[in-house]
């Protein structure tokens, strides 16, 4: 039963990276996945045109939590223009698991991307 639930996913679920909130984020958004009740809040800090800090908070399944950890890490050092260009494939590549046959899990994995898009809109 562990095609999707590889050790690093479980590990990130238990010990997420960049988990928390920010006092005064430059960009901020909260998104929900109505089918499973997952909720993710994303906060971004910008300095001289570059993302210097990213945090996420909320609750969700292992996939959305692991994806958020990896995704927040990935955003650091990027410019606003670069953020705008990030697409689904990049997020899925971070997770390194095949979700092509699990459309419902795909939504979980892409939740932090939804949050990013909403925050910089």
């Amino acid at each position: 039963m562990d095609d999707i639930y590889q050790e690093f996913i479980i590990e990130l679920y238990k010990n997420p990276m960049n988990f928390g909130r920010m006092a005064k984020p430059d960009y901020h958004a909260e998104v929900h996945n109505s089918t499973c009740g997952d909720r993710i809040e994303l906060s971004l800090k910008m300095k001289s045109g570059i993302i210097v800090d990213v945090k996420f908070a909320g609750s969700g399944c292992a996939i959305s939590q692991a994806s958020s950890s990896l995704f927040t890490e990935y955003l650091k050092g990027k410019t606003l223009d670069q953020l705008k260009k990030i697409d689904k494939q990049e997020v899925l590549a971070l997770l390194k698991i095949d979700l092509s046959k699990n459309p419902s899990r795909m939504k979980c994995a892409l939740l932090p991307l939804d949050a990013l898009k909403k925050s910089i809109k």
């Binding site: 039963m1 999707i4 639930y5 679920y13 089918t35 009740g37 399944c61 996939i63």
Partner: peptide, 21 residues
């Protein structure tokens, strides 16, 4: 453990349950 993860892991054993609200 999130209910979504429970259901997804059970699914890998061909066990069909529901998760969510």
């Amino acid at each position: 453990i999130h209910s979504h993860d429970v259901a997804a892991m059970l699914a890998e054993d061909n066990i069909c349950v529901r998760s969510g609200h």
